[in-house]
Simulated assay, not measured.
Amino acid sequence: MTQRGNRRELLADAAIDVLAREGGRGLTHRAIDRAAGVPEGTTKNYYPNRGALFEAIAHYLAERHTAALEALCEQIPDDLEPDDVTALYAAMLRRMSGSARTQFLALFELHLEGVRNPEVRKMLGEISRGNVDTAVRLHAAVGRRLSMRGAGLLDAGMLGVAMATLSLPEELVGELGFDDDEAVSRALLTLARSRGDAGLEVLRDSAG
């Protein structure tokens, strides 16, 4: 692995790779040292325990994700259409199980750690809030109102579908239609734009 940026960034990238590949149990100082190509003991000098490792990964992912969302919002075109928003979320789903698979596998592991680690939970909250705020802004750009509750449902739905796509048998993913990124995105956006009890009715209808 080639070194990128400073030592902390190098270790954070390596830690994400290890966490995605080996899971929480495999996240050790030695494994990160090997993945980063640094002398044994280097990671422990920066992050003395496993809690610190998880927190460092959470901070790093949150910073990168926030920066990406800010760049996206700064580049919203004036002629954005509702179909463009659907296409954007479909592309996000493809990235979650494709080019960004490593980052999202690490993110899922962080959600488990966040149950017990308040600092990790805080960083996950920043990621989710950024997703919610961005969804509201994208809808406003096409003249549609989206509540925070609706945006939260959208964020949770995207995460859930991505997790199912990565963890369920491939044939079941196909049977459920989770491999149709555009259709899933359109359904999630429809649910998100529903408000109050109407939103719950949509959820009940889709489940029944």
Rank of each mutant, 00 (worst) to 15 (best):
M1Y: 13
N6G: 15
R8T: 10
L10I: 13
A15F: 00
E22L: 12
G23C: 02
R25I: 05
A31Y: 01
I32R: 01
I32Y: 05
R34N: 11
G37T: 11
G51W: 03
A56M: 14
H65F: 05
H65V: 00
E74I: 01
L80E: 08
T86A: 15
L88W: 07
Y89K: 06
A90M: 07
R94H: 14
R95Y: 04
S99D: 14
L105N: 00
E109D: 08
E109H: 11
H111W: 09
N117F: 02
K122Y: 12
E126Q: 13
S128H: 04
R129S: 10
R129Y: 12
D133Q: 15
R137A: 14
R137M: 09
H139F: 06
G143Q: 08
R144Y: 02
S147L: 04
S147E: 05
M148T: 03
G157F: 12
M158S: 03
L159G: 10
V161Q: 09
S167F: 06
S167P: 02
E171H: 13
V173N: 03
G174D: 14
G177R: 12
F178P: 02
L189G: 05
A192S: 06
R193V: 10
R195H: 11
L203G: 05
L203Q: 09
D205E: 14
G208N: 13
